[in-house]
């Protein structure tokens, strides 16, 4: 850009002059950062069952439809949800297991569908990366089983499959999982190495952090007119969630056996 380089230098120079107390080295900066207070609640206090219960409660508060089922009941439960929706045409990301694609419906698998093709679908079925019970948030890292971002955006109806073992209580627990510290299996597909060579000028050790994330807390909403909450302005108006009781932590639920989209 014309003049861009000079503005860059000018701004950085102004900042440098304005911050005489800035850390002198990457190590000093890492130390400054490390000294930040973090007295807030990190680990949740609920047991696994109560945590899932809270997640379900929160999702329902957001007007999401939630059903729970055992792992082996999942295909049947999906089929029942699809049938109950009264819709026929669905899209799904390429990474979802074949048994999710219930017979008797029109399925289009997203091997590069156009926006118009996705828009034409009546609903979408995907997996998720994580659920945060405290806020009823579903987190997508857009792996092969969670789909490209646009896939869960244009259809008016979203059925999301969440395994109980993917549900954490607090947001900090999600961030722990996202950083790969205590992953639950699926995150690898949506996590790419962002590379560390030659860029780490702030003393950060960049691990495998997600490149794309969408945090979804209930259906699209607005309160712009007289603070009246209206569901579904632009995103899906209907969010349905199936919570799969896969019990033991670390066991792989069906959502992990995906093909790679890329």
């Amino acid at each position: 850009m014309n003049g861009g380089a000079s503005s860059r230098e000018q701004i950085l120079e102004r900042i440098q002059r304005a911050t005489p107390g800035a850390a002198a080295s990457a190590a000093a900066l890492a130390e400054d950062y490390g000294a930040l207070p973090r007295a807030y609640v990190r680990a949740g206090r609920l047991d696994a069952d109560a945590c899932v219960e809270l997640m379900v409660h929160r999702l329902r508060e957001y007007d999401a439809e939630v059903v729970e089922c055992a792992a082996e009941e999942l295909p049947g439960t999906i089929a029942a949800q699809l049938a109950a929706s009264g819709r026929r045409s669905f899209v799904a990301p390429p990474g979802v297991p074949a048994e999710w694609l219930a017979a008797g419906f029109d399925w289009r698998i997203d091997h590069g569908l156009t926006a118009a093709e996705i828009e034409a679908a009546e609903g979408v079925v995907t997996a998720a990366f994580c659920g945060v019970a405290d806020s009823g948030t579903i987190v997508l890292h857009h792996s092969a089983s969670e789909g490209r971002r646009v896939l869960t955006l244009l259809p008016d109806w979203h059925l999301c499959i969440l395994r109980a073992s993917q549900v954490v209580e607090t947001l900090p627990e999600y961030f722990g999982r996202a950083a790969g510290n205590q992953g639950s299996g699926d995150e690898k597909a949506g996590t790419r190495d962002l590379g560390t060579e030659g860029l780490g000028n702030c003393g950060h050790e960049t691990g495998r952090l997600p490149r794309l994330v969408t945090w979804i807390s209930g259906p699209s909403a607005t309160a712009d007119i007289e603070m009246t909450r209206i569901k579904g302005v632009h995103g899906p108006r209907f969010l349905h969630v199936i919570v799969v009781k896969d019990r033991k932590l670390g066991t792989q639920g069906p959502a992990t056996q995906g093909l790679s989209v890329q």
Binding site: R58, S135, R149, L194, R211, L212, V213, W215, I216, Q262
Partner: peptide, 28 residues
Amino acid sequence: LQVLARSATGERMNPYTSLWTGVTAGDG
């Protein structure tokens, strides 16, 4: 993200939060 939505709209979390990194082939 814990303080923003609570302070802004009185929600535990706002409906959508997006994070993206540069460009991603095939997505966006």
